[in-house]
Amino acid sequence: MILRLPPVAPGLRVGLYGGSFNPAHAGHRHVSRLALRRLALDRVWWLVSPGNPLKDRSRLPEAAARAAAARIVAADPRIAVTDFEAGLDAGRPGIRYTVDTLRWLTERHGEVRFVWIMGADSLASFHRWKGFREIAARMPFAVIDRPGYTLTAMASPAARLLAASRIDEAAAATLADRAPPAWVFLHGPRSTLSSTALRAAASRPPP
């Protein structure tokens, strides 16, 4: 099976932003542009996942369809959208978790300076992710503040466990060059958009 990844080159600084993107929205683009600027990245890849293995995927649109819609929303040449994880999931049973994806990428493209990007809501539950310690040890990561999660995220078990490897926000542009574990919490303008809310609004009957 051929897995189609965006172009890579040695030394390229790439942010990895994963999710179901069901649907992609302007908030995803806002986070990506913030990461590009504050982390001095060359590219951000939206990793459109086959679906959260802990949730019901029966009503989830195919990854290819979600990726096609996400490309329209991204509207930035620095943002690449890929559903290559769907190929991993189909071609190699068991590759359904973020830790497996990051392991696959770093083992094959160790010359690329990857940074994992997540929202503050994800940091709040990061300790429940499969292999979260390996994720932190495999590549630096950036946490983007989200409304309602600032305090919860920073008081989370993962944030406390990894407190010693957190870098100052003023040094965010150096994150991609640092050996993991290393992470930064980025404050700034926050988007209130969410895919869950957009799906709920779309399913409501007109007044």
Rank of each mutant, 00 (worst) to 15 (best):
2 I>Q: 14
5 L>K: 05
7 P>F: 01
9 A>G: 08
11 G>H: 05
13 R>N: 06
16 L>M: 04
17 Y>Q: 07
19 G>H: 05
23 P>Q: 05
24 A>R: 03
27 G>L: 07
28 H>P: 08
29 R>A: 09
29 R>Y: 00
31 V>R: 08
41 L>P: 10
45 W>I: 03
46 W>L: 07
47 L>S: 01
49 S>C: 04
53 P>F: 00
55 K>S: 00
58 S>F: 00
59 R>G: 01
64 A>V: 10
65 A>I: 09
70 A>H: 12
75 A>W: 04
79 I>Q: 11
80 A>C: 13
81 V>M: 05
88 L>I: 00
96 R>K: 11
97 Y>L: 01
102 L>I: 12
107 E>H: 09
108 R>M: 06
110 G>I: 03
112 V>I: 12
118 M>E: 03
119 G>C: 03
127 H>N: 09
128 R>S: 10
130 K>D: 07
135 I>M: 14
143 V>I: 12
146 R>E: 11
154 M>C: 13
154 M>H: 03
156 S>F: 02
177 D>K: 11
177 D>P: 01
180 P>E: 12
180 P>G: 12
184 V>I: 13
188 G>E: 13
191 S>N: 13
194 S>A: 15
196 T>R: 13
198 L>D: 07
199 R>N: 07
203 S>T: 11
203 S>A: 15
